[in-house]
Nucleic acid binder design. Structure first.
Lengths: 201, 201, 201, 201
DNA sequence: CTCTAATCGAGACGGTACGTCTAGTCTTAGT
DNA sequence: ACTAAGACTAGACGTACCGTCTCGATTAGAG
């Protein structure tokens, strides 16, 4: 794992005590744990420091805002097992992808994602990083999968892929943010509906 | 407009000094104004009280949490001009509806909506009210519009209407929450994509 | 008992609902009870109103300040059984008087007196009433008793009676206010000391 | 002057930013000033913080209750010039001592003392400290002075010294707390009366 | 036997201070 | 140069009372 995907740390490495990786890991783990367990806004630098057994000052040195700490811990700890395996049946692959995303966000980790999105509303920097580091990569992978289906002639050639992704991901997030269940049946019916306009006839 | 959409106030008017409607209006206006102008989390009861020229305690008397104040001010102040006019062309009507929703959320009022959704992540009660008082009614109207199209035979009879709405509204919200532009062109391309699977052939 | 020793109520008595004596009594009793039970500053108009089952406004109508309510309830409720019986032995009478005052102030009622004196430090009006309605009458009675002793030739003719009272009462109050025990033995030793300079030889 | 007469601060000096003595002094001075100038209960932590130019939280860190702040500022600021000089005439020394105590308490500083005693009525801890840090030392010194007189044979050998002090100090406090003048003439007449029973014949 | 005027109860309202929590900054000592 | 510890400024939190106010309901005596 790289030191930090968000902060450039390629300084030539001068003298002095080197940064403790143990501290960084402890902080991120504590932050993620707090986001997991206290959905009701109990996420404070104070609490993270206490749980990580780390001085508050140390956190401030490395993470300028609460939002950036939250999102880095999210990127560090949230590893959804998404199914990008195209296989030979693009419809099935699309269906599986939506289902795996819904499942990943339906549990407690989903609350973390929702918290991060909420944080991002009051911090453009957090918003940008969420988009670039989490949202966009996911879209790229999904794009590839759909375009494979187009190449196979199974999906319509004139399909507006980015819009499909907007709709699919947006629907999932909306349910997450409104506190509604994200079960497999629902994910499947969403895939059904979207595929209705995607498949060639 | 009724006194309050959230609280039942049909008590037969007992003794005691009656609640001042001027105060209620001033607080809600101040709250909405703050949500509009200070996107960066500057929404505090303190600030609302100051701006409304009202005692802080008065706010606490009527709004138990920040979230409930935020959402009531949102419901009171956010009146999107949505186009539910079915007309005789369901496709056009659907297109117009999506466009009007996108437009309504693209301006500063959209930031208010985003803030409210963010607040709702740390307050289930706020979340519930947002869903019941804002989200659901909008879905019902949209449903009617789509079903009119089905009745006219212009939309597929087996259309999964709730899923279509999930996708449409979800896509719009996603862009809003990720801080991306919500222009007419984008809304139109979204409508195109969805209609691709909705219209009969 | 007169309506109120503190407030003039000799208005000509026009029309309208007359003041309820039940309310007055309930308030004073509640106030005294609170002063008895919550020595730690838990004496608020709010609490008195609640305990008396009376509207807060009603209290404000009749008692302009907290101090005046406190002292009126004290005067109304604190009825020490002081021994002013001169008898034929002035020494014994003096001794008994000091003992009875110490005993009266040693129990919970003593805490009430201390509270009132404390209140009086931030309200000159309360201070004045305490002096005039409680302290001075007690001094007058004590004076008589001592002067009877002088008349009998048992106490020194040139005795500075007010100073003796200052010393006796002051010593008792000091112990009360410093939270020290006010037992009979102590009261007796105080009387001994004072009599040492009072009796003729 | 030691750091604090109330709190032991002999810890070996660990890590962390050291406590600012400037802040401590500013707070105590502000507190004493408020006690001096606003006899009518205007002594609030809020006001002290404002006057001292210090954050409210800093005060709470070091002084758990209002009473303890009041008394520490009193002990820090009230330095009566008491006359404990025995000299060769015990009567004169006793007289001077009473006069100097009365004078010290007759001015605005006397109001501070009264306020502190009032505060102590709703806070046993404050009461205890007042007794131990202010009252008792004063008694010890007075004791010495009187006992010197006994040793010289000028005061009665069987004199109950603590009771004499109770009477003398109590009388002074009583007048202070009842808002009566504490002039030299009065102090002298008190001394006269007490000495009447103290001197040998 | 109604009118009328004061009371009492109820509760909203603008305030002040409370004591707590968290955010950030700063200043030391230790590694 | 980093970490740990902790003092400090700043300010919002939610609560408790304060004292004022506006009502409705009640309760006598006066007309």
């Amino acid at each position: 794992m790289a030191k930090s995907p968000l902060v450039v740390t390629d300084v030539p490495r001068g003298a002095g005590r080197p940064r403790s990786d143990a501290v960084r890991a402890a902080v991120l783990a504590a932050a993620y744990g707090l986001l997991l367990e206290t959905p009701l806004g109990g996420f404070s630098i104070e609490a993270v420091a206490l749980r990580a057994g780390v001085a508050r000052t140390t956190i401030y040195r490395w993470w300028p805002t609460k939002g950036l700490l939250a999102i880095e811990s999210f990127l560090d700890g949230f590893k959804p097992k998404l199914s990008y395996t195209a296989g030979d049946d693009p419809e099935k692959a699309f269906r599986k992808l939506l289902a795996s995303l819904a499942r990943a966000l339906s549990g407690p980790d989903g609350r973390v994602a929702a918290s991060v999105v909420a944080q991002a509303q009051s911090d453009p920097e957090t918003q940008r990083i969420f988009r670039e580091q989490f949202s966009d990569p996911l879209r790229v992978e999904t794009s590839k999968l759909i375009e494979a289906g187009i190449a196979q002639g199974r999906f319509r050639a004139d399909l507006d892929v980015p819009r499909v992704i907007d709709a699919a991901v947006g629907a999932i997030y909306l349910r997450l943010l409104l506190g509604q269940t994200l079960d497999a049946r629902w994910a499947d019916s969403l895939a059904d509906m979207l595929l209705g306009g995607m498949v060639t006839r």
